[in-house]
């Protein structure tokens, strides 16, 4: 945090040279670095991203390799998290499952951000008919509870990873559109927009080059929180048998199957859930830290 020593500036006569003020990005970064839970969240995410990236190196076994003689082995040195109903190593499956969690979470939120922010920006700047129609449509989408809407979409499209990504993206689009629109409505009346208009900038340029960069911070926070709920939603859909198809090691479907064997193999119902909760917690804490760091009033 930069502290300007006012006494020196106001001192009679001898005005000292003031350091050049830090850029807003540096301020935010420094504030974030002091946010303890935010840093913990970042650390969890980096760690799990590393696991996803280096899965082939880290996983002791192939996630699909069956060991018929080792079905339902409790956690041991050779199988640190035990084995499942086909004798597959649960740790290796969880390690590879992180690729699905990250993949689905980030792709779906990425799609939702692109579509939602673009429509929200345009609707907020254009107002009028386009704005009214598209926002009423998004209101109707929001009238559905998220999980129910995702379930209906998957019932229509059929289960599968790609369709799950689409469903989660669709569920998230209205929130991004609303936020982007609200941002534009605030920003469009500011002087810099008038200035841009005065030098003859076209609306598209004003929206995307002038206004958009000023709204990035709030959108960034929404992205982190949305990835957290996207990971949750993917695992819930897979748990219901509508998401990532078997035998791919999605954490949700692992829990769904493990539930049937709780008596024989309690570990089967524990470790995949631990993985989900850790990753979601990571994004949740990161979002919290970013919100505090990017909001000048909270800094």
């Amino acid at each position: 945090m930069t502290e300007l020593d006012l006494s020196k500036r106001n001192g009679a006569g001898d005005v000292q040279q003031i350091d050049r003020p830090d850029s807003l990005i540096m301020l935010a970064l420094r504030s974030f670095a002091h946010h303890r839970s935010g840093m913990v969240g970042l650390l969890i995410i980096l760690l799990m991203a590393g696991v996803a990236l280096f899965a082939p190196v880290l996983a002791p076994y192939d996630p699909l390799e069956m060991h018929a003689e080792d079905r339902f082995q409790p956690p041991s040195l050779s199988y640190p998290m035990g084995t499942d109903e086909f004798g597959r190593d649960i740790l290796s499956r969880i390690i590879y499952g992180s690729r699905i969690a990250f993949g689905v979470g980030i792709t779906s939120v990425g799609i939702a951000t692109m579509i939602g922010v673009t429509t929200g920006l345009i609707a907020g700047y254009a107002e009028g008919m386009f704005d009214a129609v598209i926002m009423r449509f998004f209101d109707a989408v929001l009238a559905f509870p998220a999980i129910l809407l995702a379930i209906i979409i998957l019932a229509v499209l059929g289960p599968g990873s790609f369709n799950a990504i689409l469903a989660i993206a669709i569920v998230n689009i209205p929130t991004f559109a609303r936020l982007a629109r609200a941002n534009v409505l605030v920003e469009k009346n500011k002087d810099y927009v008038d200035a841009a208009k005065a030098i003859g900038s076209k609306p598209v340029r004003i929206v995307f080059r002038n206004i958009f960069p000023n709204t990035v911070s709030t959108i960034l926070v929404l992205i982190t929180v949305s990835v957290a709920s996207a990971v949750l939603l993917e695992s819930a859909l897979s748990f219901l048998g509508l998401g990532t198809p078997l035998p791919a090691p999605s954490w949700g479907s692992m829990l769904s199957i493990g539930r049937g064997y709780l008596y024989m193999a309690p570990w089967y119902g524990i470790f995949p859930g631990l993985a989900i909760a850790s990753l979601v917690m990571g994004f949740y804490l990161l979002g919290d830290g970013l919100r505090d760091a990017l909001d000048p009033r909270r800094r």
Partner: peptide, 8 residues
Amino acid sequence: SFAVPSFW
């Protein structure tokens, strides 16, 4: 309670 999914 946010991070722990209800089914887990």
